[in-house]
Structure formats: structure tokens, C-alpha cells
Nucleic acid binder design. Structure first.
Lengths: 119, 119
DNA sequence: CGGGATCCCCCCAGATACTG
DNA sequence: CAGTATCTGGGGGGATCCCG
């Protein structure tokens, strides 16, 4: 049995790997959440604090989607009370890091290019 | 003078290169448009034909955004009648190709991994 | 602490019609 | 051929409240 249903994107009936990747990382807070978790495991409230403007509702939604897509993993520590959850990248999530870094570098170069392009 | 206003994404007041990149390539039809134009220059109607389900309105919107972001360039040939426009990648757009290919490959591996992960 | 449920508003995008 | 204008609805996301 599958761990979960696959959540792939399709174009005119066919699975599209590119769109699947985009769907995984596109979302109002997903990219910055991934940036945070690239560096270290974090708790729900720690993430929330480093994400100014992000509501708890949105953080929960984005985290649950990333978890459903097997990019991050949630850990609940039952010995703590009231409760303690933490999130970290899965192996799949780790494999995404080079792409995120490449996009960050491309964006920096893109901004620089447009800034210096005059007419 | 700038060619156009910069269209960068910010996080809590600071320019975010990663989000800027994501904004450039995220859009209902942008990724597939870029895939088409990676291979060859295409006319508006040619693009429309290879994008089943895409309305003319959406194609226009996505093309105009990509053009505003300097990813593609529009060429109008006045010698043709009624009219002939074509679109091709700019140099900036070309520089995006490796990232798109990396995302496509990652997506393929991602799908494969999830398909074969059983429990 | 770490969420979920509900209400509500606004914007994205589809449908349709019009145009140089 | 290559678009634009207008109308409309459905969903994303904010605000607020509740819960184990």
C-alpha cells in the first residue's frame, strides 16, 4: 500500500514533472519555511516567530501540505507537556535544497541584471 | 533610466531573491509556455494550439507578465497582414533553462520515489 | 502549545463578446 | 490574427473563536 496518494500535476492528461515540482514548492509561505528548515529543525512556534505576517492557520496549512508531499516530517514529543512538535526536512526535502539554492542565486543575479540595465 | 520598474518579491521588507524567482516562473501557464519557447520561437496562435485548455485571455496575461519580467520578448512583424507576432526567450529567459530542467528532473525522480515507496 | 472550525471578503480566472 | 473589455463565481486566505 502507498504511504499516501500521489499528488502530481498533469498537463492535458499526462503527468508533468515540472509542474509537480512547482506545486510542491509554490505556496505563500512554503519557500521561506523550507529556507528555515534547511538550516535546522524547528518547532511550530519557532517557525511562527521567524515568519512575520504568517498566521497560525496559514502556517498549519503550509506545513500540512509540505508534510503530505513528503518534503518535511513532523515529530511529536509526548513527554513534553502541554505539547511539543518539531519539523525537519525529509530526505526528499533535502534533495530539494540544491534547486532552492539555484533559484535563490538566479534571483539575485536577475535582480542585479535588471538593476543595472539602463536605457 | 530603467527599462521598466523592478518586480521583485520581498519578505518583511527585504528583497528575497528566491521569491523573486518563484514569482517569475509561477503562474497557471508560465512553466509550460517556457518549455515551449525553450525549443523554438512561436507565434501567439501556435502557442495557443499547443496549450489545450488555455484561453486567449490567460495566454495574453501570462505572456505579458513574462515579457514585463524580461523573460520573453515579443516581436511584431509589420510586413505581415493581418498581423504576425512571435515570442522568444530573452537572454535572461535562457539563463532560466537550467533551473527549469533541474526542476523537471527533480519532479521525475520525486514521482518515481513516491510511486515505489510502499509500506 | 499547537492546532482546527467557521465566517467572510477579495481576487483569479472562465465565459462571452467585441476590435484594429 | 492577436488580442481587450466586461461580467461572474469559486477558492485562497485573513480574522476570530474554540479545543485537547
Amino acid at each position: 500500500m502507498m504511504l499516501t496518494a500521489l499528488n502530481t500535476q498533469t498537463r492535458h492528461g499526462e503527468v508533468c514533472p515540472l509542474d509537480t515540482t512547482l506545486k510542491v514548492i509554490t505556496g505563500k509561505w512554503k519557500s521561506i519555511i523550507l529556507c528555515r528548515l534547511m538550516k535546522q529543525e524547528l518547532r511550530y512556534s519557532e517557525l511562527l516567530r521567524t515568519l512575520p505576517g504568517c498566521t497560525r492557520r496559514m502556517l498549519s496549512l503550509q506545513l500540512s501540505q509540505l508534510e503530505a508531499d513528503h518534503i518535511i516530517q513532523k515529530e511529536v514529543d509526548p513527554t513534553y507537556t502541554p505539547i511539543k512538535t518539531s519539523y525537519h526536512l525529509t530526505e526528499l526535502g533535502q534533495s530539494l535544497v540544491p534547486i532552492i539554492q539555484a533559484m535563490d542565486q538566479w534571483g539575485a543575479q536577475y535582480i542585479k541584471t535588471l538593476e543595472t540595465t539602463t536605457d
